[in-house]
Design a protein around this nucleic acid. Structure first.
Lengths: 366, 366
DNA sequence: TTGTAAGCGTTATCAC
DNA sequence: GTGATAACGCTTACAA
């Protein structure tokens, strides 16, 4: 298989396969050929590709036509060097993405591409921890912006690597009432996307409580994940506000398997519950399968189950999961807006955008 | 939401947000500062980062230490210009990836990152067709190699855009007995990864036939996809070789919903079947849910179901799908090997690597 | 509007 | 081994 997960063994060694220095008869670059054929200067060719640059319309048209014929496009590396804009957005994702993360990468890449940015993908280690070299490695590509999808990128590292760059750090804080990041974390210097978990959770609790459920459990996700802690905290707040007892919390890690096993523990050794909130859809599926198959409970008659995210699989008929939806398109559109704004004004104070959640009712509650 | 799916309206217009031309007092680049502090030339700094370049060990160490302190890393754009190697691999994926494709992107990105390449992601249009500008757009970044995951990238377009580059086109042909690409397609000039569907299919048919199944159906995927056509062709060959009647074919598109609906059609209006082969796992899930819920059939007692891919969800207990596995790690390792070999020797004749499939037995056959 | 020339950050070449 | 120097492909003052 492939090699151990160091970014590359010898720091920044290049891939050794010398490109034969062409012995062209005093090489003329394609751009220069285009210029010659259009009988304009090299600069004019550059201007032709930049709509706002001053150039007579007919010349522009001619240059573009000839470029098309010669299959010429301006080289981004050269452009990046000259303009200090790489048109690259670096994205750090976990070694293995969950369906939700995949969805988000999809949407983000599409949105960025529509804006003229290409997505540069980087992976954490298999345990989701960050290779210390990764950020430097990423910085070598000079991304115009950086989006971090993983829970384990320490803000100070991020800040050190991209001091004057334009990172957007998603997922912190999650609620308006959140204490906010400790100032020493460096976190407060990043733009971020705040997800208001409350709306969806309130709707879900209202529905469940309308069906007479009083004993709740929370099947947790990765304890370091903001998404997990915010959901738990908000759930407890909402339950308390209704005078309901706090949810029993069972440890999890967002995975199907752990969702399955934790649910069995909860109902075999623990107090069980009338309603289970899972920290994400995938672990809710594990909980559902455990309840129905291993534990012989009926859902929703005996136990109700609610997930988070609303990934595609939640609509699959074997699960048909009631879940708290985060709209990917809205989330990504917001993210892109943040990125673009930051690029317009590098010096502006950190920005926060907020999106909401809402309940999608399917058949696991009743 | 965000904009229509043209790559960007004005060809190669740049993102307009002028980076304030620093009024530094005769700017000295970071690399130069590093050189000064280490009391070496700028060239030495460059050499320090290249293990094979000649440089006294202590100097190298000193330079690297100072660079670390100053948070300096060599800029890839500059390096790309000088070396003709971008250390970028362009990957074209569908607008919305299936779980299998997400898995493969994950694994590929990790493997490439371990080799010092970053993954540059590009998306097709929503209907999986290719924006004609996309390939030029991608080429602007000068990727060292290109991997195409989508069925709809016309080989000649690909070839035109990346004539002297190093593309690897996956998924064609699939079987040793395949006729191979028509020479005029330009396809034969690409390296490719051949998936031998036969092993897994033979195992599956043997198993099913051992359970007495004789009437087979094939729930198809996207008719343009090699994966789909190769699977169908091979299935029919294997059935014929055993003297079994050919499989009834029902149109599909790899999706859950279509798998679901097509199965209902097959069993309501059509001849039904004793065993259903789905072109991929996701549509097999649709078939399973249709059989059990809409049609009231028992699986595996009344009908057996077999999928393709072995994605994570196939092991979820509600499905527990018997499926023909393609090993992602092996597939990706092979892909990376192809890419690296091609990079070593641009002029070598097109290469083909072959990987096999095997049956993973779970509970939907019996 | 247009062309000329300098410069972006890096590495290869070539002398020493 | 090492340091100057000339590319790499592009954009942008600046001058015309």
């Amino acid at each position: 298989m492939y090699r151990p997960p160091s970014v590359n063994e010898s720091d920044f060694s290049r891939f050794e396969a010398p490109v034969a220095r062409e012995d062209q008869p005093r090489g003329q670059s394609i751009a220069e050929i285009v210029a010659d054929r259009a009988k304009v200067s090299r600069a004019a060719v550059s201007r032709a590709f930049n709509p706002k640059a001053p150039l007579r319309a007919d010349k522009r048209e001619l240059v573009l036509r000839i470029a098309e014929e010669l299959n010429y496009v301006p080289n981004m590396a050269g452009r990046a060097l000259a303009t200090q804009r790489s048109h690259l957005v670096g994205v750090v994702v976990p070694h293995v993405c969950s369906p939700w993360e995949s969805l988000e990468i999809d949407a983000l890449t599409t949105a960025l591409q529509d804006r003229g940015f290409a997505t540069l993908l980087f992976k954490t280690r298999i345990d989701r921890s960050l290779d210390p070299k990764l950020l430097s490695y990423m910085r070598a590509y000079n991304p115009d912006s950086v989006v971090v999808f993983t829970e384990n990128v320490p803000p100070d590292q991020l800040h050190r690597a991209f001091d004057q760059a334009v990172p957007v750090y998603v997922d912190y804080p999650n609620e308006a009432t959140d204490p906010g990041p400790p100032p020493e974390s460096g976190m407060h210097r990043f733009d971020c996307l705040r997800v208001l978990q409350r709306d969806g959770i309130e709707q879900a609790v209202a529905l469940l409580s309308g069906f007479g459920r009083r004993r709740f459990a929370y099947l947790a996700g990765n304890p370091k994940a903001q998404a997990n802690t915010a959901r738990l905290r908000t759930l407890q707040q909402v339950l308390a506000a209704r005078g309901l007892p706090p949810a029993a919390v069972v440890d999890g890690d967002f995975s199907y398997q752990r969702g399955h096993d934790a649910t069995i523990e909860l109902f075999r050794a623990g107090p069980g519950a009338e309603a289970v909130f899972a920290a994400n859809d995938v672990s809710a599926f594990g909980a559902l399968d455990a309840l129905r198959q291993a534990l012989g409970r009926r859902v929703p008659e005996d136990v109700s189950v609610v997930g988070f995210d609303d990934i595609d699989q939640a609509a699959w008929r074997s699960y048909d999961l009631t879940t708290i939806k985060i709209d990917v398109e809205e989330r990504v559109a917001t993210l892109v807006r943040l990125i673009l704004q930051r690029l317009q004004n590098r010096g502006a104070p950190p920005m926060t955008e907020t999106i909401r959640t809402k309940l999608v009712v399917r058949s696991t509650v009743g």
